[in-house]
Amino acid sequence: MTIMSGGFGLCGNPETLIDAVRRAETKDLTVISNNAGADRFGLWALLNNRQVKRMISSYVGENKLFEQLYLSGELELELNPQGTLAERIRAGGAGIPAFYTRTGVGTVVAEGKPTEVFDGIEYVRERWLQADLSLVKAWRADPEGNLVFHKTARNFNPMMAAAGRVTIAEVEEMVPAGTLDPDHIHTPGIHVNHVIMATINEKRIERLTEREREDA
């Protein structure tokens, strides 16, 4: 099956749901995610458990296990420019089967894909992405499945929620119906099939650097 997993780096990852997939031991997964977690966190657990057959990703540079599996031939990889990945997912949720972009023209990204010239400029055609199951992490939800994401933890989550045939959201807080201001809802409940309370809410920092503050 194909699974979309929200998050960017270690921000906004559905850790509770990833752990549930790990415990289910489902094999031969295709996973669509911007990255693949970090050492012993996030999607790393599924890679370590040899549950992932193929990754459709953008940034994989911090994951040594990912590198090892890919170079050994145990893991297939479809690498996307980050903006293209985001738009392919958004298109999947919007019901747009294909679109054109200049990104990747004349590179290996465009190999085997149709191209077309618009106004004298060449574009490559990219296909939408959809998933059997989307796993997302939200800050708040109400009983109807309306979701609010917290700052940058929004990242890929709303787009993936719309692009999954079945979407499960794990949330940090459940609020009563009518509590959420409609103008503040990022993902309407029509896109969400199930909501669970998150049991893993670590706020890890992937790479921490510090410097002394200079005097004004």
Score class of each variant (00 low, 15 high):
residue 118 F to R: 15
residue 106 G to P: 07
residue 121 I to E: 15
residue 119 D to A: 14
residue 141 A to V: 08
residue 120 G to A: 11
residue 164 G to N: 03
residue 191 H to F: 12
residue 180 L to A: 04
residue 115 T to N: 04
residue 206 E to G: 11
residue 129 L to I: 13
residue 188 P to E: 10
residue 204 R to C: 07
residue 153 A to L: 07
residue 159 M to Y: 15
residue 195 V to D: 01
residue 122 E to M: 10
residue 144 E to I: 01
residue 167 T to Q: 03
residue 158 P to I: 09
residue 119 D to Y: 13
residue 103 T to Q: 14
residue 127 R to G: 09
residue 149 F to Y: 15
residue 103 T to N: 14
residue 117 V to W: 10
residue 147 L to N: 04
residue 192 V to T: 05
residue 114 P to T: 01
residue 133 L to E: 00
residue 183 D to V: 02
residue 200 I to G: 01
residue 125 R to A: 11
residue 108 V to M: 11
residue 161 A to W: 02
residue 129 L to K: 10
residue 165 R to A: 14
residue 135 L to M: 14
residue 123 Y to V: 06
residue 189 G to L: 07
residue 140 R to Y: 05
residue 159 M to L: 14
residue 152 T to K: 09
residue 115 T to P: 03
residue 111 E to S: 09
residue 133 L to K: 00
residue 136 V to K: 04
residue 141 A to D: 08
residue 138 A to E: 07
residue 155 N to S: 15
residue 163 A to C: 09
residue 117 V to T: 14
residue 149 F to K: 06
residue 148 V to L: 08
residue 104 G to T: 05
residue 152 T to C: 06
residue 155 N to L: 09
residue 199 T to P: 00
residue 123 Y to H: 15
residue 148 V to K: 06
residue 127 R to H: 13
residue 117 V to M: 13
residue 122 E to D: 10
residue 128 W to Q: 14
residue 120 G to C: 09
residue 203 K to Q: 15
residue 128 W to R: 13
residue 174 M to L: 13
residue 110 A to D: 10
residue 103 T to Y: 13
residue 205 I to D: 13
residue 163 A to Y: 07
residue 130 Q to S: 09
residue 138 A to P: 01
residue 147 L to R: 04
residue 121 I to K: 13
residue 199 T to W: 02
residue 157 N to F: 11
residue 180 L to W: 12
residue 202 E to C: 04
residue 164 G to T: 05
residue 165 R to L: 08
residue 172 E to G: 12
residue 206 E to C: 07
residue 171 V to L: 08
residue 180 L to H: 10
residue 193 N to K: 02
residue 171 V to T: 07
residue 127 R to S: 14
residue 179 T to I: 05
residue 115 T to C: 06
residue 148 V to P: 03
residue 112 G to Y: 03
residue 193 N to L: 02
residue 119 D to M: 11
residue 140 R to N: 04
residue 191 H to V: 00
residue 111 E to N: 10
residue 121 I to W: 02
residue 192 V to L: 07
residue 110 A to H: 02
residue 138 A to I: 02
residue 117 V to G: 11
residue 163 A to L: 08
residue 160 M to N: 07
residue 194 H to L: 06
